[in-house]
């Protein structure tokens, strides 16, 4: 059997997907990226071998993607995460035309044509307030797990407006709101709304076309997806049966399997 690997070396995690000749997902792995991206990728391959019995030397084609794509020491042409994300998204939802990828370091909005070719894209400006780090950072400062944040937000019927211009200022604002005795659930929902409205601005700039597909670590956050859906007044689909963080790696693996031609 022939295997093909997509390696998405991201700022927070390194993701690997192995597909076979038919494009069926045979194995996947997510590890923390840490400071040595090459070692993280090696460790992910070792895990795949242990858990799925697929050795690296059995893989016929690789495509590295993500911020660390040039640093993995893999002798294959790196492909941008945006192209890979589009390719993976359209494989999972062929009717997807707008993709929202909320990652740890950036947020991308991608418009694709029916063939899955990237038509336009936009990325958040240089500020953590537009990325998944926004919620993560404040969860740490509140001493809450992300799951608790999501639950609190989903259960809250009210939301308090939190500034979305800067993640650091937002953190200060949250602490001040808590000191002021405001309801924690409303604050946490306000935070999710704040990030959603920032991504909504990005979407508005690029123009929205249905169907809308969301991926990246942010798509794991049901509260964020709910707020986002309300901000843009549209339903948002997410990967089914696949971790939302693996979409770009899937796209990379499919490109490794069949070149860069989008699906027909």
């Amino acid at each position: 059997m022939k295997y093909f690997a997509g390696i998405d070396s991201g700022s927070t995690t390194t993701k690997i997907i192995i597909v076979d000749e038919a494009g069926t997902i045979m194995a996947s792995e997510i590890v923390l990226s840490g400071s040595n991206l090459r070692e993280s990728a090696n460790s992910a391959f070792e895990n795949i071998e242990k858990r799925h019995g697929i050795r690296r030397d059995q893989v016929e084609g690789f495509v590295p993607t993500g911020y660390g794509r040039f640093l993995l020491g893999i002798d294959s042409k790196p492909i941008s995460e945006i192209t890979c994300c589009a390719r993976g998204s359209v494989a999972l939802l062929p009717s997807a035309r707008t993709i929202i990828d909320v990652g740890g370091q950036d947020t991308k909005v991608i418009r694709i044509d029916p063939k899955g070719t990237v038509r336009q894209f936009s990325m958040n400006d240089k500020c953590a307030a537009g990325t998944g780090k926004f919620i993560e950072r404040i969860a740490v400062s509140l001493g809450l797990e992300l799951e608790q944040m999501v639950k609190l937000s989903l259960e809250s019927s009210t939301k308090i407006s939190i500034s979305n211009t800067c993640a650091v200022f937002a953190e200060t604002e949250v602490i001040s709101r808590i000191s002021g005795g405001e309801d924690l659930g409303s604050i946490v929902r306000g935070l999710h709304y704040s990030l959603a409205s920032r991504v909504g601005t990005q979407l508005a700039r690029l123009g929205l076309e249905k169907d809308i597909f969301m991926c990246g670590g942010g798509a794991l956050n049901a509260a964020l997806v709910k707020e986002m859906s309300e901000v843009i007044s549209a339903e948002i689909a997410r990967p089914e049966g696949l971790d939302c963080r693996l979409v770009a790696a899937l796209g990379a693996a499919l490109i490794a399997r069949g070149g860069r031609e989008p699906v027909a």
């Binding site: 911020y67 790196p78 492909i79 941008s80 945006i82 192209t83 950036d106 070719t117």
Partner: peptide
């Protein structure tokens, strides 16, 4: 200080693809 090479190339690579 307001330039990120990784970010520039990330955007440019996707642009070249398009």
């Amino acid at each position: 200080r307001f330039y990120s090479d990784a970010e520039f190339k990330q955007r440019l690579d996707a642009f070249f693809d398009a």
